[in-house]
């Protein structure tokens, strides 16, 4: 049984993905499918809301890495918002803030698309 889920919301042209649960080697494919679904619908402006994400391992981080170039080539971005401290620490440890906009709140992430 998977204890991970992705919820879809929109804010104008921005696609918001609500991640919930534990993102690891077993569940990373669900995030991958969600990002592919955004691409299929030509939604390239993506905000990840991580407020309910309790755990991430490298398999989850790898999904962001695998898709970021393609999303940016299409004029979009993946911005990551509202991470719990323990999850942010993992992103930070690998230097993700160099590559990704990581914001405290979803609103800040949305505002970054308007800059």
């Amino acid at each position: 049984m998977s204890n991970f889920s992705v919820g879809f919301r929109n804010n104008g042209s921005i696609q918001i993905l609500d991640l919930k649960g534990e993102l690891d080697a077993h569940t990373a494919s669900e995030l991958e499918a969600a990002i592919q679904k955004c691409q299929a619908g030509s939604s390239y402006k993506i905000v990840i809301n991580g407020s309910n994400l309790a755990y991430i391992s490298s398999a989850g981080l790898g999904v962001f890495m695998a898709y970021i170039e393609e999303i940016r080539e299409n004029g979009g971005d993946i911005k990551i918002a509202a991470l719990q401290e323990k999850v942010f620490n993992v992103f930070d440890l690998l230097g993700f803030p160099i590559l990704f906009d990581i914001t405290q709140s979803e609103d800040e992430a949305i505002a970054k698309f308007e800059e």
């Binding site: 391992s57 398999a59 981080l61 790898g62 890495m65 695998a66 970021i68 230097g95 160099i98 590559l99």
Partner: peptide
């Protein structure tokens, strides 16, 4: 190298 890694579109190798 994280930037090169993203350019390569790989997802594994971070563990």
């Amino acid at each position: 190298d994280l930037i090169e890694f993203a350019k390569s579109r790989k997802s594994g190798g971070l563990g």
